[in-house]
Design a protein around this nucleic acid. Structure first.
Lengths: 186, 186
DNA sequence: GGAGTATGAATGAATG
DNA sequence: CATTCATTCATACTCC
């Protein structure tokens, strides 16, 4: 809709400033960072991002933190059935994206991987500092590309999956109404 | 109102519809499940329900997900608002019925509170849990604790409530006018 | 046809 | 990280 309304709080229209309402610019930066592969920013990164974004509007560190948490989680579930996103960066690969982030006030651009302040696990990994992806399940990269639309949730390694098929398209497996399953209300 | 009158949109009477519009049958099933105590269907449950409901009309998993999400939320606070920005909170009383649900995929019957797949939190609450149960017994012993636990634990452990400003363990507490950083966007 | 309302969808915030 | 709660936005639809 028309988000051109004068920002009462942030970007959205009748925002009731109870909670953070990111501006378009803020979302842009966050999204870019995410697309570039940043998934779980460290405390320092959050601090920097937050500071940077504060120039676009009110924002706190926790907002940034939550944003990434939510964005990542929802990327997996695909609550939306919108456009397909670029596949998540290979956890073990150098994630050397060539994305650029441009500042609208200065028109200068930098490769996102070279931003002085912000960067991600790839860098640190190379230097053997913090992250050791090996410790992670490597976020079992599901085939986001293949699936798409409706699927928004994955069963993952739920202990409940006794008779689960290992790869069954959980959602969107719009097979058909084969079994008049459950509900028993009928 | 909950008018069952024929409408104009998708499920009712064809029209341009950007969003899902449940058919009467779909609503019936969903409502029955809800009144039977189902509040937060698991992934698999959603899948089943969705598949089943698809025989009544177009539907996606996310629709089912949202439906329960919204229905539960609105049950709590009897949306008896007159306008937006309503302040009156309405305490809720969890309703628990003893309806049964049949799982045809397994050909077994269960009281809804004991269904392997479908069930509500009434049970859990009896056992001392606070509110929503946890569907997954947590066998996921990831080892991420070692790696990036610091990032969100600090958030978790702090009240972070409405006034997080007073707490600031690491957030906000971090150096204040961050030196250079500036994300290099400039 | 506009106002008011019911509800689908989205997302920030929070907890385990 | 998974799941859930809360609040808000957007829109279908009813009623006048």
């Amino acid at each position: 809709m028309e988000e051109a309304a004068a920002g009462l709080c942030s970007s959205r229209v009748g925002a009731k400033c109870g909670r953070w309402n990111p501006t378009a610019e803020q979302v842009k930066v966050l999204t870019d960072l995410f697309s570039a592969g940043l998934r779980t920013p460290s405390t320092e990164q959050i601090q920097k991002i937050s500071t940077h974004l504060s120039s676009f509007g009110k924002i706190e560190n926790k907002n940034v933190f939550y944003w990434f948490q939510n964005h990542k989680a929802r990327e997996r579930h695909h609550h939306h059935n919108k456009k397909r996103r670029r596949p998540p960066p290979a956890p073990t690969s150098p994630v050397h994206t060539d994305l650029f982030v441009l500042d609208h006030s200065d028109r200068r651009e930098f490769p996102i991987t070279k931003l002085p302040g912000i960067w991600n696990e790839a860098e640190e990994m190379k230097r053997g500092k913090k992250k050791t992806l090996e410790l992670f399940p490597l976020t079992s990269n599901y085939d986001y590309d293949a699936v798409e639309a409706d699927q928004y949730k994955l069963v993952r390694n739920s202990p409940l999956r006794n008779n689960m098929v290992g790869e069954l398209n959980l959602f969107d497996a719009v097979i058909e109404p084969p079994l008049d399953l459950t509900l028993g209300f009928f």
